[in-house]
Each structure stands twice: as structure tokens, then as C-alpha cells.
Amino acid sequence: MKIAPREAYGQALVELGQENKDVVVLDADVAKASMTVMFKEAFPDRFFNLGIAESDIVGTGAGFAVAGKIPFVNAYANFLLGNGWDQIRISVCYANKNVKIIGHNIGASSGKDGPTHLPLEDIALTRAFPGMTVIEAADGIEVKKAVRALAKHVGPAYMRVGRLPIPVITKEEDEFEIGKANIIRKGKDVTIIACGVMVSKALEAAECLAERGIEAEIINMHTIKPLDTLTILNSVAKTGAVVTAEEHTVIGGLGGAVAEFLACTKPVPMRIVGSPDRFGVCGTYEEIHEVLGLTVANITETSISLVLLK
């Protein structure tokens, strides 16, 4: 089964809106793409379309937070972070305001729209802000839990949400806690830490690896910041090797976060699977993933070569 993260996100906002009257939703003229249109239809008085003005939408969200509301601020991730970066830095993070920044159409999920519309840098950009929580759920089920957790969490947060359907690999009963990674497959030979759609690919890779006699431990690192370092340390103590996988540049994302931590505490052989230092291309979701190496085959081969190094 596949669910588009944005569909789950739209549904989650409506559920949240019913439970919590303080939730307000802001969008920058992409409500039909971000699926905040669902919230708009359910709660028109708590939905605000600010037009194509990403700097303004972040600031307005921060104003709502000053007044005690819980704003979810939505736009395409690349434009929201590109045009709103300074506003997120000062009016949200430095001001320590309870604003949820939601970046849409992340990674390669805008497909044929091409390089301008493929945000592959947003984790790096948001992770650098002091006090910012950064989340990417592994599937539609987890998106819903993340939205609920974000509403309870007090403080600046960024969540990246994909456009196209991706496999559902978590279960309704799985726990979700911000900052607490989920081990979704036990293994002893190599640790694969992934987020977003790459968690499902890591699971597939684990099956391929098992056929080769390599038992991979898979960690769903839905919270990239704060990083669950304890879970990483415990896993690495067992496996002695780490591969990370993300739909994001290899610079400064999940791999960067894990590498920064392990290099300073417990260096082990490590590889980062992600987009190389380049822009995306026009193509289908799958085609772009092929070009960027965001594939089950790449995770599998990278893991095998790493295990051989141990």
C-alpha cells in the first residue's frame, strides 16, 4: 500500500483542528498541493492564504505564535526556506516561537517540474538553526503521528512532506516520539539509518542483504534534530558500521548529522547515501531517484562494500 505524505498531512490537520482550537493554518497559494485545502474547507476561519509571499507567511505565523496560537506554516520547501530563511532565523528560532514550518514537495517528489522545484538542501538549512526540531516521517501513517506530536511540542519545528505516494511501512500501533528513533529491523552486521521514503528502501535493501548473509539493523530516524544519539550508539556498538540514506543532498543532512556525532564519539566505517552535490533533473520520481542514486541497489551495494571493509 502507498499513501502520499501530503494526503496524510491534510487529513491530520483536520483531525488536529477538531481537537485543538488554537491550531491555525497558513499557506502561500499552494493549498491544493500541500493539501491544507482540507483544513480550509473544515475550518475556514482558521485558515489564512497569504498569497505568494513566503517571507511574510513565516512572519505572520510568528505573530500568531506571539498571541498564543499554534500556527502551521505551509509552502513548497525550496521557496519557503529560500525566501523565508531570515524570517525563520530571527522571528521563529531566535525568538523561540512555537511555529511549525512545513516544507512541501520535498526531495524529488515534484518530479518533472525539475531542478528549481526539487528541494534537496532543506534538512541542511533547517538543521543549522539553534533550537529547531527537524522531522521527516517515513510514511503516511507516521506523518499523522508527527503532526500530532508537533502540535504538542512547544517550540520551532520544521517538517518536510513529500508529494507522491510512498510505501506504508509503519503500523498504527508503533510509537512516535519526537527525538526517539524507531528500530524497525534488528541486525548485527551493519546499521542503516534512514528517514522519509528511504526507510522503505532501506527495508528492501535489508532483504537483499539478508540473501547475501548480511543482517542489517534498520533505524527509522524520523527526527533528524534532535538526533537520537543513544539509539545510534547502541546499534553501532553491535554492528560497527553505518550507512545513512536520505532523499536529500549528502551535505549537511541526516548523514551529516550522524557523521558529526560519530566522528566525535565513536568513529566507525560509514557511508552516506543521498543526492550527490548537484541539482536534480526533470524526470519521474523513480527516474530522478535513479539519477541521484537513491535506490535500493545503491543502499545494498554500499552496505556490502562497507561490511567488507570492517
Binding site: 489564512f48 517571507s55 505572520t60 505565523g61 505573530g63 500568531f64 505564535a65 498564543g68 524570517q87
Partner: peptide, 12 residues
């Protein structure tokens, strides 16, 4: 940045 903030509080 200030006018956007003021608008947010005013809408709230």
C-alpha cells in the same frame, strides 16, 4: 520583519 508579526497578532 515587524509588520508581518503585527499582522499575525492582529489576526489572532
Amino acid at each position: 520583519q515587524g509588520l508581518s508579526i503585527a499582522n499575525g497578532t492582529a489576526l489572532a
